[in-house]
């Protein structure tokens, strides 16, 4: 099951090492965008958004339709994020806010029903076909060669962009007025309301922000990942793993956990290709056993 020779060989060669490390990074960074939205929503609203993958899907589809008309990758990514964000606010206001503070199982059920409905709606609007947006012309370039390894320009761009979005989100939450209100409301919502601030509005905006992060990940990945109804399903479980390992509520934790996961997959594909999934769940279990609050959050579960 484990092929250590292949691993050692790979890391003995600069080209192989570059290939696997960068592929781990690109997988990790897109995952980070999705997971950061999930962890943000949990951290502030204490809601687990089981429907998070849906917003990733919606972002990708919105981006695809925009791209059809405008042929602009950046504009379509923006529309994807905005669309997913607005859709997220709708979901928050109309559905999930009705079960705030209730049993986690009620939230699970609302999210599940929402996933079913959205998947079928996507099928009705865009059809069941495999859709590929195609790689935008400006990124149809030969890959960069670094120490003999390959790095596609699109991926280099995505890694940097995801990092920028991640940092902006952290700044938004920690440094702005919006961020401080939201954090305060998370701690003590009646107190913040008493100051005349419309807490539900801020909560909805934050929820929308989380969904927009998932949406932009879907939109940015749309050129290289085929679009199908139900595509949010696979990404959901991986973002859960990231959120749990990084600590629920911690965006920097999600970043590091996402990179760990990306590297596990890219290194695993060389050394233990058949056990990558098993190992991911094992890491999650070990973290939960020894530090349930996640690697990067202080505190305990008890």
């Amino acid at each position: 099951m484990f092929d250590f020779d292949a691993l050692i060989n790979c890391f003995g060669m600069a080209s192989c090492a570059v290939n696997q490390l960068t592929s781990g990074l690109i997988i990790g960074m897109l995952l980070f965008l999705v997971a950061s939205g999930l962890t943000l929503i949990f951290g502030v609203l204490n809601v687990i958004n089981f429907a998070h993958g849906t917003f990733y899907m919606v972002g990708a589809y919105f981006a695809f339709s925009t791209y059809l008309f405008t042929e602009s990758y950046l504009l379509s990514a923006f529309v994807g994020a905005l669309g997913a964000g607005i859709f997220g606010i709708f979901f928050e206001r109309v559905l999930i806010s009705k079960v705030y503070g209730q049993d986690i199982l009620m939230q699970l059920l609302v999210c599940y029903a929402f996933i079913l409905i959205t998947d079928d709606l996507v099928k009705l609007i865009w059809g069941t076909d495999y859709i590929a947006m195609g790689i935008p012309d400006e990124f149809r370039l030969a890959p960069f060669r670094i120490f003999g390894g390959y790095v596609p320009p699109l991926y280099a761009f995505l890694i940097i962009l995801s990092l920028v979005i991640g940092i902006l989100t952290i700044l938004l939450i920690s440094k702005t007025r919006f961020g401080s209100i939201v954090r305060a409301a998370a701690e003590n919502s009646p107190m913040v309301s008493a100051l005349g601030i419309r807490v539900p509005l801020y909560f909805a905006l934050l929820f929308g922000l989380g969904c927009a992060l998932a949406g932009i990940a879907g939109a940015l990945a749309a050129p290289v990942r085929s679009l199908t109804p139900g595509m949010g399903f696979g990404i959901l479980i991986e973002s859960f793993i990231v959120t749990v390992i990084g600590g629920m509520g911690s965006i920097p934790g999600a970043l590091i956990a996402a990179i760990i996961l990306g590297l596990t997959r890219s290194i695993g594909s060389v050394g233990f290709p058949l056990f990558v999934d098993g190992l991911m769940f094992l890491i999650m279990a070990i973290v939960l056993i020894f530090k349930p609050t996640g690697l990067f959050v202080k505190g305990s579960s008890k």
Binding site: T22, Y150, A221, R265, S269, V270
Partner: peptide, 21 residues
């Protein structure tokens, strides 16, 4: 070399680079 992505895996980057290597 043999590489085995999961069915419905969203991205194949690590498999593609394994093939390139």
């Amino acid at each position: 070399t043999q590489t085995w992505p999961k069915i419905f895996q969203p991205d194949y980057t690590e498999n593609i680079t394994a093939l390139l290597n």
